[in-house]
Amino acid sequence: METLITLRTSLARHSTGTFCLIDRRRFSSNNPPLPHFEIEEIMDWVPVFLLTFKLLVLAIGMFFAIKWHYDQGKKSGVPANERRTVLRAGGMVSAVFVLGILMLGFLTFSLGKTLGLDLTLP
Score class of each variant (00 low, 15 high):
43 M>D: 12
44 D>Q: 06
45 W>T: 07
45 W>H: 14
45 W>C: 08
46 V>P: 01
46 V>C: 05
46 V>Y: 09
46 V>L: 14
46 V>Q: 09
46 V>G: 01
47 P>H: 02
47 P>Q: 05
48 V>P: 00
48 V>S: 03
49 F>P: 00
50 L>T: 02
51 L>H: 08
51 L>Q: 07
51 L>S: 09
52 T>A: 15
53 F>P: 00
54 K>T: 05
54 K>M: 06
55 L>F: 05
56 L>G: 08
57 V>I: 11
57 V>E: 08
57 V>C: 05
59 A>Q: 06
59 A>F: 02
59 A>L: 06
59 A>P: 00
60 I>V: 14
60 I>E: 13
61 G>P: 01
61 G>E: 03
61 G>H: 04
61 G>C: 05
62 M>A: 12
62 M>Q: 15
62 M>N: 11
63 F>Q: 10
64 F>W: 15
64 F>S: 03
64 F>M: 12
65 A>S: 12
66 I>A: 12
68 W>L: 09
68 W>N: 07
68 W>K: 03
68 W>E: 12
69 H>S: 13
69 H>M: 04
69 H>Y: 08
69 H>T: 04
70 Y>A: 10
71 D>I: 04
72 Q>K: 09
72 Q>V: 02
72 Q>E: 10
73 G>M: 09
74 K>W: 10
74 K>R: 12
75 K>T: 06
75 K>D: 05
75 K>N: 02
75 K>L: 06
76 S>C: 03
76 S>P: 00
76 S>F: 06
77 G>D: 03
77 G>I: 07
78 V>Y: 07
79 P>Y: 10
79 P>C: 12
80 A>G: 01
80 A>V: 14
81 N>H: 02
81 N>W: 01
81 N>Q: 09
82 E>R: 08
83 R>S: 11
83 R>V: 12
84 R>L: 13
84 R>V: 10
85 T>K: 11
85 T>L: 03
86 V>H: 05
88 R>D: 11
88 R>Y: 06
88 R>G: 00
89 A>E: 15
89 A>I: 14
89 A>M: 15
89 A>H: 03
89 A>T: 14
90 G>T: 03
90 G>Y: 04
91 G>H: 08
91 G>V: 01
92 M>L: 13
92 M>T: 11
92 M>V: 13
92 M>D: 08
92 M>Q: 14
92 M>W: 11
93 V>T: 06
93 V>I: 15
93 V>K: 12
